[in-house]
């Protein structure tokens, strides 16, 4: 397995150049110990092709910038070791998100729209008094919120989702996960029917087909099935109440 000669077939396309068709470009490079796709891409950009576009920031699976299709499956480039892959590796950009060029997509705008649509902030009428002590929260609730906040918004669940691929307005696992976070937060004073309006449609939880490609492709290994099912059951209950 040592010192394999890797071939990376990379999707190349610049939407800003009119008339340019997308194509796959092969690059060869020598595999090194502990090499990730992120390292391989940087080596290619440094030594072979400075025009190659791809995103990264933290290289430690925290920022969620380097999501891409590695051999067809949504993965974080920084978390994917080449030794777990065959010698020929295909890299393509994540679907659903706006393509900036080559492997680079704009997940930011998509997630911003999501936050606006779902009202992803604590809704409260209480005014802030800096002289008062903070309201306390049970440790159990705090942990629940923390768990629901582990999503790094890399977009892998959205890219793996069949519904999101054909429906631009679908909230996807990341969106429903976000909603679940505010549902468990006692500081959020939104009445139940407000959630119902946002989530209980084909754009929301009832558009989910239960294919679980989100859960199976989540780099953070979040319990998406459990959370999605929680939102679905909750929405059904609210639906019969409101």
């Amino acid at each position: 397995m040592k010192n394999r000669e890797l071939t990376l077939n990379i999707f190349r396309y610049d939407p800003n150049i009119p008339g340019r068709e997308p194509y796959m470009q092969p690059y060869s490079l020598q595999e090194t110990e502990g090499m990730t796709i992120f390292i391989a891409l940087n080596q290619i950009r440094e030594n072979q092709d400075p025009s190659l576009k791809f995103d990264f920031v933290c290289r430690a699976a925290i920022c969620g910038s380097c999501g891409m299709l590695v051999n067809g499956r949504p993965r974080l480039a920084c978390k994917t070791l080449t030794r777990d892959l065959p010698e020929v590796i295909t890299l393509m950009p994540l679907p659903v998100f706006k393509l900036i060029g080559d492997l680079s997509v704009d997940t930011g705008s998509w997630f911003r729209q999501l936050s606006i649509k779902t009202g992803a902030w604590v809704h409260s009428d209480k005014s802030f008094n800096p002289n008062c002590q903070e309201e306390r929260m049970s440790n159990e609730t705090a942990l629940k919120i923390y768990e629901a906040e582990r999503c790094i918004e890399c977009g892998c669940c959205i890219a793996g989702c069949a519904t999101a691929n054909i429906r631009d307005d679908f909230l996807g696992a990341a969106g429903l996960y976000k909603i679940a976070r505010f549902m468990v937060d006692p500081r959020d004073e939104r009445p139940e029917e407000k959630y119902f309006d946002v989530v209980s449609s084909e754009e929301g939880v009832f558009g989910c087909l239960g294919l679980m490609a989100c859960e199976d492709n989540c780099p953070m290994e979040l319990p998406l099935q459990v959370q999605l099912a929680y939102v679905r059951r909750k929405m059904a209950l609210i639906g019969f109440r409101v």
Binding site: G72, R73, M92, I166, G210, L211, M212, D216
Partner: peptide, 21 residues
């Protein structure tokens, strides 16, 4: 258009539950 996307998506993803669907 949707069907084309789904075939492309499913073929690429090689995901058992998506194929089951």
């Amino acid at each position: 258009k949707e069907q084309k996307i789904i075939w492309h998506h499913t073929g690429r993803l090689r995901h058992l539950n998506t194929w089951a669907w």
